[in-house]
């Protein structure tokens, strides 16, 4: 564990929490893409199957359980409790365009042809593009509430910090995971345009439009 990894994980945790709190406090999930949230839940469900087979650390186990519960909790709030506020007309990104290529890629480019390993690879590839329905929704409606912007920023910062963590780990431990690094870079790049708008607009108190 290094500082980049820790802050990255905390940023991820923070992103999920502000999203849940936003929905809970405003009793509304307007502006949030349910499709991205389903993809994230699928990412966690396929990546954290090793909860049942391997123990890594208490930190690792607790974080995984938190991510799983909170992502399914978000889906429950969006599709059941505050269903009426879900902006489905603007949430129209075709997720099969992500799921199918990601499934094929994970079957071809993986560390080992093994069920757990392939599902892990699938989750890494899927995570890198899972935010696209949300970004698509923001571009379609032409704006995002500040809180949604903070959520996106924290979520993007998490993977960016992981890249610093991988550079650090490469020099200190010789650790290098090509699949995670490439997918992590793709994931971070997808947020770049948003980061720019966030810094130039949202931090100056303007709405993201």
């Amino acid at each position: 564990m290094n500082i980049f990894r820790l802050i990255g994980d905390l940023s991820h945790l923070f992103a999920i929490l502000i999203l849940l709190l936003k929905i809970w406090k405003t009793r509304s999930c307007a502006g949030i893409s349910g499709r991205s949230q389903i993809l994230f839940a699928l990412v966690f469900a396929t990546r954290y199957l090793d909860l049942f087979t391997h123990f890594i650390s208490l930190y690792n186990t607790l974080m995984k359980i938190f991510y799983l519960c909170s992502s399914f909790g978000t889906i429950y709030l969006m599709y059941v409790k505050f269903k009426a506020t879900y902006d489905r007309n603007h949430d129209t990104f075709r997720v099969e365009f992500l799921l199918i290529p990601v499934a094929i890629l994970s079957l071809i480019f993986n560390h080992e042809f093994d069920v757990l390993e392939i599902l892990w690879t699938f989750s890494i590839y899927l995570e890198s593009v899972a935010i696209l329905p949300q970004l698509f929704m923001v571009s379609k409606t032409g704006e995002a509430e500040s809180i949604t912007s903070h959520y996106l920023f924290a979520l993007g910062a998490y993977r960016g910090l992981y890249i610093l963590n991988w550079i650090y780990r490469y020099y200190t431990e010789g650790f290098f995971d090509l699949i995670a690094v490439i997918a992590g870079i793709v994931q971070t790049v997808l947020y770049c345009d948003f980061f720019y708008l966030y810094i130039t607009k949202v931090l100056k108190g303007k709405r993201l439009t």
Binding site: I56, N60, E117, Y162, N165
Partner: peptide, 10 residues
């Protein structure tokens, strides 16, 4: 048989 590569990252 190769051992499963532990994933310590989230």
């Amino acid at each position: 048989e190769k051992q499963y590569q532990l994933k310590d990252e989230l």
